[in-house]
C-alpha cells in the first residue's frame, strides 16, 4: 500500500502542526505583489494554514529587510506595505526549489515503504 495515500492534513489533526518558516512565508506572500502586515497574515493563512502572530510577522519582516530581500514602500494611511526585491525573488526561488527536491525525495522514500 502506498503510504502517501493516507495523507493527513493539519486541519484534520492539529498535532501534525503547520509549516512554519516565517521569513519564507513572508517572501512567498509578497511574491504576487506588495502587501501590508494584515494582508500578509491573511494571505499566509490562506496559503498554508499558518496564522503568524504580530511579533513573529515583524520579526520576519525585520530580518528580511536587513538582508535586502524585501523593501518598504511609501506608507498608505497608517499601513506600511512591503515588496519583495529582485534578490528576494532569487532567494525564494532557490529555497522553494530545494524544498521541492526535499519533498520529492521524502515522498519517494515513503512510497517505497
Amino acid at each position: 500500500m502506498r503510504s502517501t495515500r493516507n495523507v493527513v492534513h493539519p486541519e484534520e489533526d492539529p498535532k501534525i502542526g503547520y509549516f512554519s518558516d516565517p521569513p519564507l512565508l513572508v517572501l512567498a506572500s509578497l511574491a504576487n505583489g506588495p502587501k501590508h502586515g494584515h494582508a500578509m497574515i491573511e494571505d499566509i493563512a490562506r496559503l498554508c494554514g499558518t496564522r503568524l502572530g504580530p511579533g513573529t510577522l515583524y520579526g520576519a519582516i525585520a530580518r528580511l529587510e536587513q538582508q535586502g530581500w524585501i523593501e518598504p514602500l511609501p506608507a498608505e494611511d497608517r499601513r506600511q506595505p512591503y515588496r519583495i526585491t529582485g534578490e528576494g525573488l532569487r532567494v525564494l526561488r532557490a529555497k522553494l526549489t530545494t524544498l521541492q527536491q526535499f519533498t520529492k525525495a521524502g515522498l519517494r522514500r515513503l512510497e517505497s515503504l
Binding site: 504580530p54 511579533g55 513573529t56 525585520a62
Partner: peptide
C-alpha cells in the same frame, strides 16, 4: 506573541546591516 518576539529581539538582535 509580541512579548516573546520582543524578548527574542533583545536576546538575539537582527543580524545584517
Amino acid at each position: 506573541n509580541v512579548v516573546w518576539s520582543a524578548l527574542h529581539a533583545r536576546l538575539i538582535p537582527t543580524r545584517g546591516n
